[in-house]
């Protein structure tokens, strides 16, 4: 659970995570936007289906993998949040073909 140190700064846009609208601020990457919205489970381990979430926030650990606009296994901590992004939990390993957005 996180909060913003500046309560007043405005929203820069909205994306969705598992159909749920998530507002984000300027400068947020997808992982930060989701964490700020209280989303704790980003993906399920392909090995044992255990819940996983960002660990390093700098592109090293690959725990923040999500599906963005139909493209699977995207590193949420490296991708700037953009309005209209459709984001889903990464469930297990990626499929061979990306899903249609």
């Amino acid at each position: 659970m996180f909060r913003r140190i500046e309560a007043s700064a405005g929203t820069a846009g909205t994306l969705t995570f598992e159909e749920r609208p998530v507002a984000f601020r300027a400068g947020d990457n997808v992982a930060a936007a989701l964490l700020a919205a209280g989303i704790a489970r980003f993906r399920d381990s392909p090995v044992d289906a255990a819940p996983r979430a960002p660990y390093c926030m700098m592109g090293v650990c690959f725990e923040c993998l999500v599906e963005i606009d139909g493209r699977q296994n995207q590193q949420a901590c490296l991708i700037p949040a953009r309005t209209g992004m459709v984001i889903r939990r990464q469930r297990g390993a990626r499929d061979l073909a990306d899903r249609a957005p």
Partner: peptide, 11 residues
């Protein structure tokens, strides 16, 4: 990093 790039702090 969350603090620097998004002004986020654990609650």
């Amino acid at each position: 990093i969350l603090l620097k790039s998004s002004g986020l702090i654990p609650s």
